[in-house]
Amino acid sequence: MKKAILLLLITVLIPVFVYTQSLENLDYISPFHDDLVAIQKDGQWAFVDEKGTIVVNFRNDLVTTKINDENYPVFKNDRCLIEKEKEGILYFGYIDKTGKTVIEPQFLNAMNFNTEVALVLELEKQIVGKNRVFNKDVVHYQYYEVLIDIDGNIKKYLTKDGVNIALDKKFLTKPPHFTSKQISENLYAIFNENKKWTLLKINL
């Protein structure tokens, strides 16, 4: 009899314990994107699944996206943008749905993935000489607008000529802007130095 009562209590109470879990005092709850919801608390963001389980814990490096006049981080193609500051300059990378960094923060700017590629600003370093007094390399930095796949591999250069840049927080106070934009699955518009647009069809 006691065993039957205990079994009955377990049968009744376990679902109650499971389904009455809640996340309280949240500052923001986003709509679903890529099967996950972004939640904000005390200035940090996390992600929960459709069951309300936290799958990416609260952290302060998630990059928000403006959607319908609201800003919150999103997953696209199982990737979410993150940022990391190094010597006063922001670099961008991506995490997966476990919170693991799968593309290290290395880009001067980056967009969310779309149709399995993302538009990023790839930074390239060139050694152009040697400072004999200080025995240091003289370096030159440029960035290019490129498309990467979900593993971070470069699939296509959208700009042929690199943009010279001083890699110093005094001059680079915010991420450089893109001159390219995706307008359909295979079409990209590129704004050139003549202030004209080039329409480029890309099949990856």
Rank of each mutant, 00 (worst) to 15 (best):
V139S: 11
N135T: 09
N153I: 03
E185D: 11
T98E: 14
T173C: 01
R59H: 05
F75Q: 03
Y28L: 08
T65M: 00
L147G: 00
M1W: 13
N71M: 04
H140I: 02
Q142L: 08
E193V: 15
A46I: 01
Y19F: 12
F134L: 07
V18R: 14
D151G: 08
K125P: 00
K195S: 10
I202Q: 05
N186T: 08
D27S: 09
N135A: 13
E145V: 03
D35K: 15
K196H: 13
F75G: 05
A118S: 14
G43K: 12
A110D: 04
G152L: 06
F58T: 01
D61A: 08
F113K: 07
G43L: 03
I150W: 06
D34V: 11
G88S: 09
F58V: 02
I165V: 15
D34I: 07
N60F: 13
V37A: 04
V139T: 15
L7I: 11
W197S: 00
Y72F: 14
N109T: 04
V128C: 08
D161H: 14
N194G: 07
P15W: 12
F75I: 03
F17D: 00
F191C: 00
N192G: 11
K130R: 15
D168I: 10
Y188I: 04
V102C: 04
K196C: 01
F171P: 01
V55G: 05
I127W: 03
V139D: 08
P175K: 10
K2N: 08
T173K: 15
L90F: 13
I54M: 14
N153C: 01
G88V: 08
T159Y: 03
K136N: 12
G93T: 08
N131F: 03
N68V: 10
L13D: 05
F58W: 05
V138D: 06
R79E: 00
I202S: 09
V138N: 02
I5V: 14
D49S: 12
E116V: 10
L200Q: 08
N131R: 05
T173Q: 15
I154R: 10
N112E: 00
K155Q: 15
F191S: 01
D168Y: 12
V146E: 07
I165P: 11
F107C: 03
T115E: 13
N68K: 15
I183Y: 09
L167K: 12
L36Q: 02
Q40H: 09
K155I: 12
V37N: 01
I89H: 02
L121Y: 06
Q182I: 07
I95A: 05
K201W: 06
G152S: 12
I39C: 02
V146S: 10
Y143A: 00
D34T: 07
L167W: 09
G88C: 02
K130L: 14
P176M: 01
K181P: 00
D42G: 04
D168V: 10
D96S: 12
N68S: 13
Y94N: 03
Q40R: 14
G129Q: 07
L187R: 13
I148V: 11
D96E: 11
V146P: 06
R59T: 08
P176Q: 02
S180H: 07
V146I: 05
Q44P: 01
L204P: 04
V63E: 08
Y94H: 01
K196I: 02
V56A: 05
L123N: 03
N57P: 11
L26W: 14
I29V: 15
E24A: 11
G93Q: 04
F134C: 03
Y91K: 06
Y94F: 11
N68I: 11
T20M: 15
E104G: 00
